[in-house]
């Protein structure tokens, strides 16, 4: 654990304290504490199945923790009423792993959706705003396409344009790089950083893609078995002494996380009585 310098409290946008969460008897989080600071790109990393997506849903108030608190922009997310929670969510954008585009609407309508729902802007203004958002992700030319005609990378960029349509304060990315070819991965990496700096956002990136995430993150929290095992800048983590972090950051096949799933020894399995 690195001891972060004492920041002014207003710099902390999201404050997760002692979060415990269980699902179906399985412990997902056991006392997770972390902070997300203004203007930074914060990455939350860890192997698949450690509940990174769950963490985003807890921050967004879609799930309730068993204990512990999540404070976003100074408000305790799980103490808010429905209306207050919805008001708070307007200041959060979230990019889902699948994109979650509305399949029956065109790209333009998808990006226009949050604007139409939450503002009374006249149609010409919405038109211009949508085109600007699409321009930012480089897909202005694809405005009339349907989501089914888009490639995976394009769909995710459209979803990104939709997520930033209301100019949120916090952007959350759920596995933005998963299942992308190298080119669209590169595009997304630059986009996340560029949007973060150009729009003055604060971003949370949940990912297990070490290389890409290290390129853009200011702070990385590594999660394993329900706890934060290490936090720090990408450089600090790369120098980490922890065997586990080493294995994860350098993508070694064997280490504290064994290559073989636990089971009886090979000899027993092969020679044992069938």
């Amino acid at each position: 654990m690195t001891s972060a310098p004492a920041d002014k409290p207003s710099d902390v946008l999201v404050d997760v304290k002692n979060l415990c969460f269980r699902r179906g008897g399985r412990v997902i989080f056991e006392g997770v504490s972390l902070q997300i600071r203004r203007g930074e790109v914060t990455a939350i990393m860890g192997p698949s199945g450690t509940g990174k997506t769950t963490l985003l849903r807890l921050i967004g108030g879609q799930l309730r923790p068993d204990s512990g608190t999540v404070t976003v922009l100074g408000q305790n997310v799980h103490k808010l009423g429905r209306d207050a929670l919805f008001r708070l969510r307007r200041r959060m954008g979230m990019l889902f792993q699948s994109g979650a585009l509305f399949t029956h609407q065109s790209v333009f309508e998808n990006v226009a959706f949050p604007l139409r729902e939450h503002t009374d802007l006249p149609e010409p203004l919405i038109h211009d705003l949508v085109l600007m958002k699409l321009q930012a992700v480089g897909l202005r030319g694809a405005r009339d396409m349907m989501p089914s005609e888009l490639s995976g990378g394009m769909a995710r960029r459209v979803a990104l344009a939709r997520a930033v349509a209301l100019d949120p304060t916090i952007m959350m990315y759920d596995e933005p790089f998963a299942g992308q070819d190298p080119i669209s991965m590169g595009v997304l990496v630059t986009l996340i950083r560029r949007l973060n700096d150009a729009l003055g956002l604060s971003s949370v990136v949940v990912s297990h893609d070490v290389v890409e995430t290290s390129q853009i993150a200011d702070t990385i929290h590594v999660l394993s078995e329900g706890r934060v095992v290490e936090s720090g800048s990408p450089e600090e983590l790369a120098r980490s002494e922890s065997a586990w972090v080493k294995q994860f950051m350098r993508a070694l096949p064997d280490g504290p996380v064994a290559f073989h799933y636990p089971g009886p020894s090979l000899e027993d399995d092969l020679l044992g009585v069938r």
């Binding site: 849903r57 879609q62 889902f96 792993q97 979650a100 399949t103 729902e117 939450h118 979803a159």
Partner: peptide, 22 residues
């Protein structure tokens, strides 16, 4: 069901739109 499976309902909720109403 497909909107739920493809996270469209979740997405709506995160955009502060209540899928119950919408």
């Amino acid at each position: 069901g497909l909107m739920k499976t493809t996270e469209q309902l979740s997405g709506m909720e995160m955009m502060a739109v209540d899928p119950m109403k919408r």
